[in-house]
C-alpha cells in the first residue's frame, strides 16, 4: 500500500535520498520549517506592521483603541470563559478518564465513543447543542420543556465544554493508565480507603495529564470563534469574534491585526510560563 503514485515518483526519490543521508536530513527538516515559516509564521509576523499605521503621526492608534472598554471586555471574557470552560471540562474529563482507566473492561468501545466527536466538524456539534437549547428546537417540541439558555453565557460554556471534552480525556486517561496498579493495591493494603487512595495516590500521579489537558482546553476555548458565534448573543462576544468582526464587517485590517497581536502576545506569555513548568512537546504529543 502506498500513497505515492504517478507523478509523485520524484517525491519518493527525494524522501529516499533523505532517508539514506544523501540529502542531509536537516535539509528535510528545513524544508518543513520553511513551509510553515513561509505560509504561517511569516504571515502572522506581518500582522505586526499591518497593525501599525507607520508614517502617520499616530502609529499606535489601533493599540490605543484596543484599550477601549468594549474590547478590554472581550479580552477579559475570552480568558474568563476559557478558565470556566477548562474547569468544567476537566471535571467531566476526569470522571470519564477514571472510568476508562479503572472501572470498565470495554475501554476500546468507550474510547471510540469519546473520540468520535473529535472527528466531527465543530460547526455540526455546535449546531447540535443549538438544537438542544433552542426554545423552538426538537427537545422543546418533544417534551414541551423550554430552556431559555440559548444566547447566554452558560450556553457558550456548555458548548465549549462539549466540543473540547475529548481533547481533555486523552492526556488525563494516559496519565491515569500509566499508574502502576501495584501502587493502588499497595495503598489499599496499607489501610487507605478508596477515597483516600484517590486523593493521596491516584490524583497526585495524574496531575501532569490534568495540567496538559487544562492547557489544551484553555488555549482552544479562549480562542474559540464558533462557540460564541453560534450559541452566544451580543453580550457573549469573545476576542475571536471581535477580530473577525473588525476584519469582515468593518474592513479594519489594522485594528483586527492589533487585536490579534495583543491576544497572541498574552497567550504566548502564558505558554512560556507553562513551558518552564512542563514540556510543551509532550503535552501536544498527547493529542
Amino acid at each position: 500500500m502506498s500513497v505515492q503514485r504517478g507523478g509523485l515518483g520524484r517525491v519518493t526519490h527525494i524522501i529516499g535520498e533523505g532517508l539514506e543521508g544523501r540529502i542531509a536530513n536537516r535539509h528535510l527538516a528545513l524544508f518543513g520549517l520553511g513551509f510553515v515559516g513561509l505560509f504561517f509564521v511569516l504571515p502572522i509576523l506581518l500582522l505586526i506592521p499591518e497593525s501599525l499605521s507607520l508614517g502617520s503621526t499616530t502609529p499606535f492608534e489601533s493599540y490605543r483603541r484596543v484599550m477601549n472598554g468594549i474590547y478590554v471586555d472581550a479580552f477579559v471574557r475570552s480568558f474568563l470563559y476559557g478558565f470556566v470552560t477548562t474547569g468544567v471540562t476537566l471535571a467531566l474529563a476526569y470522571m470519564l478518564s477514571y472510568f476508562l482507566a479503572f472501572s470498565t473492561e470495554r475501554v476500546r468501545t468507550a474510547m471510540i465513543l469519546i473520540i468520535v466527536p473529535l472527528w466531527i466538524a465543530y460547526i455540526v456539534r455546535y449546531f447540535g447543542i443549538l438544537l438542544f437549547l433552542s426554545p423552538a428546537g426538537p427537545l422543546a417540541d418533544l417534551t414541551g420543556f423550554e430552556t431559555d439558555l440559548l444566547f447566554t453565557t452558560p450556553a457558550v460554556v456548555i458548548g465549549l465544554a462539549n466540543v473540547y471534552l475529548p481533547f481533555a480525556v486523552l492526556p488525563i486517561y494516559n496519565s491515569l493508565n500509566a499508574i502502576d496498579e501495584e501502587l493502588v493495591n499497595a495503598s489499599r493494603v496499607l489501610g487507605a480507603g478508596k477515597w483516600r487512595t484517590i486523593t493521596k495516590v491516584i490524583f497526585p500521579l495524574s496531575l501532569p495529564g490534568l495540567v496538559a489537558a487544562g492547557l489544551i482546553v484553555f488555549i482552544l476555548a479562549a480562542g474559540s470563534f464558533l462557540g460564541p458565534a453560534v450559541l452566544g448573543g451580543p453580550k457573549q462576544t469573545m476576542i475571536a469574534n471581535v477580530i473577525a468582526q473588525a476584519f469582515l464587517d468593518n474592513f479594519n485590517i489594522q485594528f483586527a491585526s492589533a487585536l490579534a497581536i495583543v491576544y497572541t502576545v498574552l497567550l504566548v506569555g502564558l505558554l512560556l510560563v507553562f513551558n518552564t513548568l512542563f514540556d510543551l512537546q509532550e503535552v501536544l504529543g498527547n493529542i
Binding site: F39, F40, P43, I44, L46, L47, I219, A222, G223, S224, F225, A240, I243, A244, F247, I253, A256, S257, A260, Y263, T264, L267, L271, L284
Partner: peptide, 11 residues
C-alpha cells in the same frame, strides 16, 4: 496552537 481566526486574517 494559534487561534484559527488569527491564522485566517494573517493568511
Amino acid at each position: 496552537i494559534i487561534s484559527p481566526v488569527i491564522t485566517g486574517i494573517a493568511l
